[in-house]
Amino acid sequence: MATDTPTDTDFGQVSRTKDVAFRLLALAATLVGIVSLAALLANVAVDAVGWLNWGFITSPPHPDPYEAGFLPALVGSIAIMLLIALITFPVGVGAAVYLEEYANDGLLTRFIQLNIANLAGVPSVVYGLLGLGLFVGLLGFGYGTVLAAAFTVALLILPIVIISAQEAIRAVPDSQRQASYGMGATKWQTIRNVVLPRAMPGIMTGTILALGRAIGETAPLIMIAAPTTVFGIPNSFESKVSAMPLQIYTWASYPETEFQYGVVAAGVVTLLIVLLTINSIAIVIRNRYQQRT
């Protein structure tokens, strides 16, 4: 790269210009995705004005855009999400504790680890087929029910929950474990009294973020035959369930301007607000408990 010719100023000038140009290009590339998304979000937010109101949040869907509402989808999404939390949290934490605290660095552990990383990359529509074959078909949870939806999406986010829980557990300093052992505590006592409490904020943050991912999933719900439209809120685990992204998918096909640039926009904004709320909760938990420790 370097040169030993003394008359190097021109070359230096050129390469400096090139350097600045490249720097700007890289900055532009960094911003292009963010700016595009921001523009799209601004568009949808403006379109939703006037449509996102109390009536929209509290009514069932309707073919007339002025009467159409989002209630069953909103409640359905939240019901699915709570059930997913109940399923994934204990299993995810359990798996993470095993991998971080118990497992040796043997072949099996590495296989499990590789497998988890790979599961996180399996397309969500394939998880939908798993749900269709296993939960709807084999186990008879019923097509498109709250139960089938929750279990299917729970399996989908489980790898993410495990990976984030592992990171949280790994972040607990080893000295604290040693201190606990030094006091005569057993392994299980150490995990229960030292490791898990210290790791809990991180685990919660990771789990809640994963739930945010879950609430936006559409394809698995389609594959377990969730209905096009649901008018009531779920009244049992066997209820057919609607969810916000599904209702948006249904509405996205309605060609009327009032739907495309009104009702659907309101649905999208509602979904994003719920998502934002979930993620904020995660961040608040992280910040609050990070400061204490």
Binding site: G94, Y98, L99, I112, N118, V126, G133, I162
Partner: peptide, 20 residues
Amino acid sequence: LFMLCALLSILTTVAIILTL
């Protein structure tokens, strides 16, 4: 119990492959 949780991930892969 914890090991079972971890093995569940392998079970998931197996279940996906079997269903398909």
